[in-house]
Nucleic acid binder design. Structure first.
Length: 380
DNA sequence: AAGTCGGGGCT
DNA sequence: AGCCCAGACTT
C-alpha cells in the first residue's frame, strides 16, 4: 500500500524537481552557505514577507550577526534595529531569544531534533520542517502559503486553508508527497515547492502553461484553477437599521419622494426615512410636525434587506393624517450617511396603484404592495 | 476559532 | 482600498 502510494506520488516530486533544476531559484543569499543558521534566519524573515523585501535585510543582518553566538550576545535593541522596517517585530525578538536558548541549552549548535527545534520561540511546524529539510536533509514537510496554494489546486481541495480541517488535509497530502522524494533531494524539493508557488502557481494569473505538474493538477483538469484555494470567508456583514415612514392622507394616498442621486438606491422613489437610533429624537421631531393632524400611528413588522456590504433592517411606521394639506417639507440633516437625508424633500402624494409604477427599492415595493392588498381587503 | 502583528506588492 | 503574503503566538 505504501509502495503504491509512493508510485502515485512520484510524478509530483519528479516533475517538480526536474523543473526546479532548470527554472528554480538557486542563487538566493541563504543558499550559500546553506547552514541551519542561515536557513533559520531566512525562514523567519520570510514569514509573511516576500523574497525581494527580505534580501537586503538578510544581508545586513548576516553581516552584523554572522553566527548564533554573535546574535545571542547582542542586545535586543541592536537586533531590532536590524529588523526595523521589516515588520512583525516579534519575529526579531523571538529570533534573538532563541539564539540565547540555543547557546544555553544546545552549546551554541542549532539543534537537529524536530521537537527541540519546534520548542524554539518563533518556530512553528512549517518553519521547523523547512529548516530540517533544507539544512539537515531530514524528511519533514512544509506547509506555507505557497504549498497551501499549490496543493489546494493540485488536489482541488474545497475549503479555506485557514480552516483547521482543511489545513489538516493539506498537511496529510504534503507528507504523502514527501514520501516519494529521494533522500538526497529533500532540500531542493522543499525549495522547489516554494519556487513553484512563488513564480508559477501564483495567487492571481498563474502561469499554468509553464507548470511542470499541469497535467495532474485537478484544478486545471476541472478548468477551475482560479477557484482554488478557496478564499477566506468574509466577515459577517454589519446590520444597519432604519425607520421608514408610510405617510397616508385622507384619500389613502402615500407620500413618495426621490432619493438622492448618489448613494444607496440613488434616484429611486422611496418612503421618507429616519435612523432608528433616533427614536424619541428625530422620530419624535417628525411626529411633532404632524401632531395636529395625526389620525393613527401603526407600527409594521420589520423587514430585512441585504446588500453586498451590509444588511438593512427596516422598521416601517404608518402615519395616517386626517387631511391632505398638513404635510409640509421637513429637512432633517443630522442623520449620518447613508441615511442622511430624510423627510420630506421634494415628493408628493401618490395613489397606491400609481406608486407601484415607479422605480422603487425592492423592500419599499413590498410595503407599497401590502398597502394595495390592505385596501382590497377593506373593500370586501 | 478569532485576533494580533506590519510593511509592501498586487489588482 | 482591500486583499494577500516563506506564520506563530495569544486569547
Amino acid at each position: 500500500m505504501t509502495q503504491q502510494k509512493q508510485t502515485q506520488n512520484r510524478p509530483f516530486s519528479e516533475r517538480l524537481l526536474a523543473w526546479f533544476d532548470e527554472h528554480g531559484r538557486h542563487d538566493l543569499p541563504w543558499h550559500q552557505p546553506r547552514t541551519a543558521y542561515h536557513v533559520w534566519v531566512s525562514e523567519i524573515m520570510l514569514q509573511q514577507t516576500q523574497v525581494q523585501t527580505v534580501i537586503p535585510y538578510y544581508q545586513r543582518f548576516m553581516q552584523r550577526f554572522p553566527d548564533i553566538t554573535t546574535l545571542a550576545s547582542a542586545t535586543q535593541d541592536e537586533v531590532l534595529a536590524h529588523w526595523s522596517g521589516l515588520g512583525y517585530y516579534a519575529r526579531g525578538r523571538n529570533l534573538h531569544q532563541a539564539a540565547q536558548l540555543i547557546v544555553a541549552q544546545h552549546h551554541g549548535e542549532f539543534p537537529q531534533d524536530y521537537d527541540a527545534i519546534l520548542a524554539l520561540p518563533g518556530i512553528g511546524r512549517s518553519t521547523a520542517g523547512a529548516i530540517l529539510a533544507q539544512a539537515f536533509a531530514q524528511p519533514y514537510a512544509i506547509l506555507d502559503g505557497n504549498v497551501k496554494r499549490v496543493l489546494s489546486r493540485y488536489y482541488a481541495i474545497e475549503g479555506w486553508p485557514g480552516e483547521k480541517k482543511i489545513e489538516q488535509q493539506l498537511w496529510q497530502q504534503a507528507e504523502a508527497l514527501l514520501a516519494a522524494v529521494p533522500s538526497s533531494r529533500l532540500a531542493d524539493y522543499t525549495q522547489a515547492q516554494m519556487d513553484l508557488g512563488a513564480t508559477l502557481c501564483t495567487r492571481s494569473k498563474p502561469r499554468c502553461d509553464q507548470c511542470p505538474i499541469q497535467q495532474d493538477c485537478q484544478a486545471w483538469q476541472l478548468g477551475e484553477v482560479n477557484r482554488f484555494p478557496t478564499s477566506k470567508p468574509k466577515k459577517a456583514l454589519p446590520t444597519k437599521q432604519a425607520c421608514c415612514w408610510i405617510l397616508r392622507n385622507s384619500l389613502g394616498q402615500v407620500w413618495l419622494q426621490p432619493r438622492p442621486a448618489s448613494g444607496i438606491w440613488g434616484g429611486l422613489f422611496s418612503l421618507p426615512e429616519t435612523p432608528l437610533a433616533q427614536v424619541g429624537g428625530l422620530e419624535f421631531e417628525m411626529l411633532e410636525k404632524f401632531e395636529s393632524s395625526v389620525q393613527s400611528l401603526i407600527e409594521w413588522p420589520s423587514l430585512k434587506h441585504s446588500f453586498s456590504h451590509y444588511h438593512l433592517m427596516i422598521y416601517p411606521l404608518e402615519v395616517t393624517l386626517n387631511d391632505q394639506a398638513s404635510i409640509a417639507p421637513v429637512q432633517i440633516n443630522e442623520a449620518p450617511p447613508p441615511y442622511a437625508d430624510v423627510l420630506v424633500t421634494s415628493g408628493r402624494w401618490f395613489d397606491v396603484a400609481e406608486a407601484l409604477t415607479l422605480g422603487l427599492p425592492a423592500p419599499i415595493r413590498q410595503i407599497i404592495e401590502q398597502l394595495q392588498v390592505g385596501k382590497a381587503e377593506q373593500l370586501i
